[in-house]
């Protein structure tokens, strides 16, 4: 019963949101606040002619590339800094600096230095995200259980097996936190990167519609993209987390 009533409550909440939107649109009665139905029509049309899937696909590919890059580099540095006091002291200042550089500055500098190319766009996004991953994973690497390290050492299982089966599983909860917050941050930065220096993707489209004052299309792209990100979260990250945590009581 609790489940049914919570679903009911969520449905009610969604209906209430749509109703207030509709009401507000009726009151304002302006091109800059289109009602839900109009946005829905634009969305359907965009899916029919393939425009929305194309640009969302491009944006997702950029999100994926910069996500993988940021996680790989961030996890490596995080482990190294969590395990070695020397490296930690050496790189800590850099970390503080990069954590505080605004995303916009990194993006502009990357475009200025490397040109308006795909690699510069992806690097800019990754550079924005790497410091957060390092900080989170470093926390995990500092709290590794020394008992398990002694076990690996006394049985001579080798550094590859130790990393894969002893260290990484202990870091996994920290990596998941970094990945989740990473996805949320990265797709927002990707839109800015596209707006500033790419000729396709959701960010580029929204910039185009902004110049045309086409708010209905902006809404259509935004809602479609949010839906896709939610599906990735629910169908991708959550089952992965459940699978890797299945040993927990």
């Amino acid at each position: 019963m609790a489940f049914r009533s919570s679903v009911l409550l969520q449905a009610l909440s969604l209906v209430a949101l749509l109703a207030s939107w509709q009401l507000l649109a009726l009151l304002v009665e302006s091109r800059v606040l289109p009602p839900p139905l109009e946005v829905f029509k634009v969305m359907v049309a965009g899916f029919k002619d393939g425009e929305i899937p194309y640009h969302i696909g491009i944006t997702l590919a950029r999100v994926a590339a910069s996500f993988v890059l940021a996680m790989a580099i961030g996890v490596a540095f995080g482990i190294a800094m969590g395990r070695s006091k020397g490296l930690d002291r050496f790189f800590d200042g850099w970390l503080v600096l990069f954590l505080n550089v605004p995303a916009l500055v990194t993006i502009i500098l990357c475009y200025v230095w490397f040109g308006l190319i795909e690699a510069a766009a992806i690097a800019a996004v990754a550079i924005n995200k790497i410091p957060n991953v390092v900080v989170t994973v470093r926390e995990g690497a500092r709290s590794l259980n020394p008992d398990y390290m002694e076990l690996a050492q006394s049985f001579h299982i080798g550094s590859g097996k130790t990393l894969r089966h002893v260290i990484l599983p202990q870091l996994f909860p920290f990596v998941v936190v970094a990945a989740r917050s990473g996805l949320a941050l990265i797709w927002k930065i990707v839109l800015v990167v596209e707006l500033l220096g790419r000729s396709n993707g959701v960010g580029f489209q929204i910039y185009t519609f902004f110049q045309l004052f086409d708010v209905a299309s902006i809404f259509a792209y935004t809602l479609a993209f949010v839906a896709v990100v939610q599906v990735i979260e629910i169908a991708g990250l959550q089952p992965l987390e459940a699978r890797v945590n299945r040993w927990r009581r």
Binding site: D147, Y148, E150, L151, S154, F155, H165, V166, P169, V244, W247, R248
Partner: peptide, 11 residues
């Protein structure tokens, strides 16, 4: 080596 606590990896 059999340690004082079993040290089995829980995962």
């Amino acid at each position: 080596y059999v340690f004082q606590n079993p040290r089995l990896l829980p995962w």
